[in-house]
Simulated scan of single mutants.
Amino acid sequence: MAGKSIFEMSPGNYMLKVVSNTAGWVIEGQPVQYVDSQVTVKSGEIVRKTIRHDFRKLSEQHPNWSKGDSFRFRWPGPRKETGMGMGVYLPYTLSTSQAKVVQQLLAAFAARKPDVAESDLLKTANFHFELVPYASIKEIFSTIQYPAWDTLIVPGKSEGTWRLNEPILTEINLKNQARF
């Protein structure tokens, strides 16, 4: 029963809260959390519930950009990058401009329209930038201190677009079921 959890619970109403250690922002030192759903368990009843990452809810939870200049983001690494199999996340420490670009890409991924035009990403990165504005997405992520290029952000399917690297969560989600 790899990937499954079974819980015996008394009859009642339950709120299922998901804490994501694999994908999303780390806010005030804690992984992102959201309410997945509510479940009612009746006496003698078995309730099956599949819990999957809800990227829409994950994208709604982001740091307050005005409270810092360094932000932590977790994203599942592709098997070839981690060498450790599915479900291993890669942590990223991002500057404010980088974090806002990643947030825009996360929201696009959650909306199932993962490709975002570079021009739109540059508008986001340069919005409050007072010095010389960034000329390309590669420039934003070029510093060695923030090695997010090619593991987190990859070219989109359309020319001139970028996207978050496709996570390996699909296979995990098919296996992760909780039975109540």
Rank of each mutant, 00 (worst) to 15 (best):
F129T: 14
I153Q: 00
S66T: 15
S70W: 04
P78D: 15
P167N: 07
N21T: 14
L122K: 02
S97F: 02
W149G: 03
K175C: 07
K175Y: 00
Q103D: 14
V132Q: 14
N176H: 09
S66E: 15
P91D: 12
A110Y: 09
W162K: 00
Q177I: 13
T161P: 01
S66R: 15
A111M: 04
I51M: 06
F129L: 13
E45G: 11
V41W: 09
T124S: 02
R179V: 15
K100E: 07
S95T: 13
Q30S: 06
T22L: 13
A2M: 08
W75P: 04
V102S: 02
I51H: 09
R48K: 13
Q104S: 12
Q103W: 06
M1C: 11
P76W: 04
F73C: 11
L121D: 08
F7R: 11
S136N: 10
V88M: 00
A99Q: 09
I27Q: 11
A2L: 09
P78L: 13
D36A: 10
Y89N: 01
W149K: 06
A23H: 02
R56D: 06
S59P: 11
Q98A: 09
P114G: 02
E130D: 13
V116G: 04
Q103V: 08
Q177H: 06
F127R: 14
L106I: 03
E81I: 11
L122S: 08
K49I: 15
Q33F: 06
L164E: 07
A2C: 10
E45R: 10
G160D: 01
D36G: 02
S70C: 13
A108D: 06
W149N: 00
P76E: 04
K42D: 01
V47G: 11
P147W: 05
I140N: 05
T143V: 10
A107F: 01
S158I: 02
F55S: 08
L121N: 07
P91N: 08
F180W: 02
S10L: 14
A107G: 12
N173V: 02
E28N: 12
A23C: 13
L152C: 05
A135W: 07
I140C: 03
L16N: 07
